[in-house]
């Protein structure tokens, strides 16, 4: 399970380094990240730019991590690739997650 965690004073930045969040790793992904967010108890920012592919089991893992955040702490997702963004959009989960474009990608066209 490849990701790095950087803690600042007021938030946790998780950079996901896995190319695929799929059925092969969804359970481990969910368990590891749930443990991380529960331990730190801070707002979370997840950088997803390295993830090329996510299926519905990966989406389920992301939802489980969001639900694990205590006290309604925010979870912000950044740098979604088109394949990952599609899954959030088609399942309407883009209305539940706080998904933001990367600041450096403002000129990127759809």
């Amino acid at each position: 399970m490849q990701f790095t965690v950087t803690e600042t004073e007021n938030r946790l930045v998780i950079t996901v380094a896995e190319a695929r969040i799929d059925a092969a790793i969804a359970t481990r992904f969910k368990d590891k990240l749930r443990e991380v967010v529960l331990r730190h108890r801070k707002p979370v920012e997840m950088l997803m730019g390295a993830v090329d592919f996510m299926d519905s089991s990966g989406l389920g893992a992301m939802i489980a991590v969001r639900k694990a955040l205590p006290d309604n702490l925010p979870l912000v997702l950044k740098d979604l690739t088109p394949n990952v963004e599609r899954v959030f959009r088609l399942t309407r989960m883009d209305t539940v997650f706080d998904i933001r474009p990367a600041a450096a990608d403002e000129e990127q066209t759809e």
């Binding site: 939802i63 639900k67 309407r92």
Partner: peptide, 21 residues
């Protein structure tokens, strides 16, 4: 889609919806 309960979000039930869509 599975029922969207904001207090207890569904973690599954998306697969066949995506296939059909």
């Amino acid at each position: 889609l599975p029922v969207m309960d904001l207090t207890d979000l569904p973690e599954g039930g998306f697969g066949w919806y995506l296939i059909q869509d």
